[in-house]
Design a binder for these strands. Structure first.
Length: 843
DNA sequence: GTCTCTAAGC
């Protein structure tokens, strides 16, 4: 039962515990800087953290697939899926222009290259193209030559010419196999260019003409669906293929797994395909694993990614540059930058040299986790290694500067990019618009937008959604409306991300009612809201106490559907009413003051109805809403109700809130294991929300246990050393609980007769991560806390976000008789486990 | 003949 016993926070133990941990950390760092160990650090508590499978420790792990490997999806896969930390559902279209067919001999004739050159010169003139094709007709040697031409046309984005060329060739070819080759080739080309509808048309014609019923054509179309993010279509086509009697091959399976990654499917789905593939006798190859890794990367499943990587190596499949780049993406996008650097070192050691994709990935990761200096030094390193920056690298870099408001530098990158021969594209402009917009530089935004048009860079959906959000957040409703009108006029098709972003902006401004209207509108238009959409709305409730509508706000509410500013006189209760309509059932808690709960429950119920799985962000939003509840009873009621939807997740939150620690802790640990799979910002948001709620309702000991568990799992980077406590990523509840834990640690150092460092400091940063109180409140909260304990910490004159005290003064304070009592935290509500009436529901 | 890597919202 060791695992179910909560860690005891006596005055002595924390120091011992953390002393051990420090040693482990040092060991961990040594292995990082040394050789190629990719394994994450050993779990601090063997029962608490599930380590990614190291080789060959995996041998013992059971699985339905192969007893030698850790299962891709653990026995908790359903929860893992529910709890997916996926960051984005948006499909990112990537065009692979100029892509070389690697490996394999040259099969086309010299004549084909000549034909290609002549064709390119005729771009846009169908009749000229026809005459070139006719003139080469007798000289081109079958499908090899035509396939070369088709692929090269694809590399030059000449999809229309590729189709013409295909039709020309296929009509003059009598052999079915050769016709089939042409068809799969052109389907692949069209797929790569995102012309999935055209690819489908070619496929259908090919099938009806009798030369398309091949595994190649099917695989090519599955891949085309994949590249457009159409996972469901890919899977459907796969089923059709099997029904029509064709056997999928390894490539088909690989394409299908790829479709899961690009279509944002759960890892479970990809894992099922993998299992299906194995049971049909196919051994996975490098591309299979690379595609599976991409699913993890897209889903924010870092630990699963590293398990897969180890599994792949164990199977004797050598990783290549794609493997490493994808693994790096999983690490970087999850904020695990120490691992990312380790991976980069390992690939270099294996002589797989980082390329521009590698650098772009890691640079972006650094920037995302606030390591700007490292990001910039990587840029220098890249240049030093003679790796030229490509379009993506440049766009990446300028986006980093723009998002930080460093516009001079951003514009310098633009200049350099243009000097290198890359013209500004829509991504460049979108990044600049977003950056300037977020800094409130609306004059620049307007200027850039008109320059974009002058330079004939057509705005895309993201351009408009960026502009509308920027204007909404800045309160420039007239401009927002104009942008929306223009967006409609351009005939662009909105998607769920477009609406979600606007809904989020409205929620952040307190326009919950308007956002509900938009939610309704998008559904009517056949665009299903997703978990992100709902999370924004739940977050709005979590903050509705501070986001009340003023009369001015009400007048300013924009009715985006009509594309016009609409004056509304509806009173505030209508906001509530809109959401009450979302609630389908009757709840027994309809007392006064409980409207917020009903709304949150209503939104949650609606999600359930629509089969939108709540994720860890939803959970955090709910916890923040709990912290906003006016009483303990209300918060516990809300969690109690939510247990009907998900007993594990809300059972833990409810149990901890109630003080049922002994029974709940073991479930809490397995919940924390699930959270550990998420990227670091998602994980810290969860811990922040949970501890805030517990602290808010006086469950301070529980809050501290959670916060220490989070620290053990390295949720917040480099939280503490003996001389410094860094709270800047924490919410105020988490930070206060952490201050107590750290001081207890300091106490044990003093108690054991060790000397303290000369200067101790506590960093609060700006407390931007607090969900309960406003910005900068973290510092105030910590100041109050330190003052109330009579501690010698004072605000540093050089840095107002830092509290300092000389070590000897802290030591003297620790020796005062009252201090230990002040440091130990207790819960306001703690239930003896023996009391029969107070046992929690069975979890 | 078909398959794998980097750039957007909570």
């Amino acid at each position: 039962m060791a695992s179910s016993t909560p860690p005891t926070l006596t005055t002595a133990k924390p120091y011992q515990n953390h002393h051990i941990q420090n040693i482990q950390n040092q060991h961990h760092r040594r292995t990082h800087n040394g050789h190629n160990s990719l394994h994450p650090p050993p779990p601090r508590n063997p029962t608490a953290a599930k380590p990614p499978a190291p080789i060959p420790a995996t041998v013992a792990a059971g699985t339905h697939r192969n007893p030698n490997f850790t299962p891709l999806s653990s026995s908790k896969s359903e929860l893992a899926a529910d709890f997916s930390g996926r960051r984005s559902t948006r499909f990112v279209s990537k065009m692979h222009f100029g892509r070389q067919k690697s490996g394999g001999s040259i099969r086309h004739s010299i004549v084909a290259e000549d034909a290609l050159q002549q064709l390119i010169r005729c771009s846009g003139d169908d009749r000229l193209i026809e005459s070139v094709l006719l003139s080469f007709q007798s000289k081109l040697c079958g499908s090899d030559d035509y396939n070369f031409v088709l692929r090269e046309l694809g590399n030059r984005n000449e999809w229309s010419m590729a189709i013409q060329c295909f039709e020309f060739a296929v009509n003059r070819e009598r052999r079915r196999t050769e016709q089939g080759k042409l068809a799969s080739s052109v389907i692949s080309v069209l797929g790569r260019l995102g012309k999935v509808e055209l690819a489908k048309k070619v496929f259908e014609t090919a099938v009806s003409e009798g030369y398309g019923n091949t595994v190649y054509a099917y695989s090519a179309l599955i891949s085309a669906y994949a590249k457009s993010g159409l996972c469901d279509d890919a899977i459907k086509l796969f089923e059709t293929m099997k029904l029509s009697g064709l056997k999928p091959n390894l490539v088909t399976y690989n394409a299908l797994i790829d479709a899961c990654g690009k279509g944002g499917a759960d890892f479970k789905r990809a894992s099922d395909i993998f299992d299906d593939m194995l049971s049909n006798g196919f051994q996975p190859d490098r591309i299979t694993y690379n595609s599976l890794l991409a699913v993890c990367s897209g889903g924010g499943l870092w630990e699963t990614a590293i398990n897969l990587f180890n599994e792949m190596c164990y199977r004797g499949i050598e990783p290549d540059i794609y493997t490493y780049n994808t693994l790096l993406d999983a690490a970087s996008s999850g904020g695990h930058m120490d691992y990312a650097f380790q991976i980069m070192a390992e690939m270099t050691a294996k002589n797989i040299m980082p390329n521009e994709v590698t650098y772009s990935t890691v640079i972006r990761g650094c920037a995302k986790s606030g390591r700007l200096d490292q990001a910039l030094s990587l840029v220098s390193e890249m240049k030093y290694a003679n790796i030229s920056l490509d379009r993506v690298s440049y766009n990446n870099l300028l986006a980093i500067y723009a998002s930080l408001g460093r516009f001079d530098e951003a514009l310098n990158v633009v200049k350099e990019m243009e000097n290198t021969g890359f013209r500004k594209d829509v991504v460049t402009y979108n990044a600049l618009l977003d950056g300037f917009g977020k800094q409130g530089r609306y004059d620049k935004v307007k200027e850039l937008f008109s320059r974009m048009k002058n330079e004939r860079v057509p705005p895309n959906l993201l351009t408009y959604s960026t502009l509308i959000s920027v204007y909404l957040k800045g309160g420039l409703y007239q401009e927002a409306t104009e942008m929306y009108k223009e967006f409609k006029h351009e005939g662009l098709k909105a998607d769920v991300v477009f609406y979600s972003e606007i809904i989020d902006s409205l929620c952040k401004k307190g326009f919950v009612e308007s956002s509900a209207l938009l939610l309704d509108e998008m559904t009517k238009k056949g665009i299903q809201p997703n978990v992100v959409t709902y999370n924004s709305i739940i977050n709005a409730f979590g903050h509705s106490g501070e986001a009340r509508l003023t009369n001015d706000n009400k007048r300013e509410i924009v009715c985006l559907e009509n594309g016009e500013k609409k004056v509304t006189n509806r009173d505030e209760d209508r906001i509530i009413n809109v959401f009450e309509q979302l609630a389908s059932g009757n709840l027994n808690i309809g007392e006064k003051g409980r409207k917020e709960i009903i709304c949150v429950l209503g939104v949650f119920r609606k999600m359930h109805e629509l089969e939108i799985k709540p994720n860890v962000v939803t959970f955090s939003a709910i916890l923040n809403a709990c912290s906003r509840c006016s009483s303990f009873e209300e918060a516990s009621l809300l969690l109690e109700e939510l247990r009907l939807f998900d007993n594990q997740v809300y059972g833990v939150a409810h149990g901890l809130l109630m003080g049922y620690r002994e029974n709940v802790w073991v479930h809490a640990l397995s919940l924390f294991d699930e959270v550990k799979r998420m990227d670091s910002s998602t994980a810290s948001a969860f811990y922040n929300a949970l501890t805030d709620m517990l602290w808010h309702f006086g469950q301070k000991r529980g809050a501290q246990m959670v916060v220490l568990e989070g620290k053990r799992r390295q949720v917040w980077e480099n939280t503490w050393s003996d001389s410094c406590l860094d709270l800047h990523l924490m919410s105020s509840g988490a930070a206060r609980a952490m201050v107590h834990a750290w001081l207890l640690n300091i106490y044990s150092i003093v108690y054991e007769g060790h000397e303290l460092p000369g200067l101790l400091s506590i960093l609060t940063g700006w407390g931007k991560h607090s969900k309960v109180v406003g910005d900068c409140a973290l510092k105030r909260a910590i100041e109050t806390l330190l003052g109330s304990m009579g501690s010698p910490f004072r605000v540093a004159t050089s840095n107002i976000g830092r509290f300092i005290s000389p070590g000897p003064m802290v030591a003297a304070w620790m020796r005062e008789s009252d201090t230990p009592k002040l440091l130990v935290l207790e819960d306001d509500r703690a239930y003896p486990q023996t009391h029969p009436n107070l046992q929690p529901l069975v979890l």
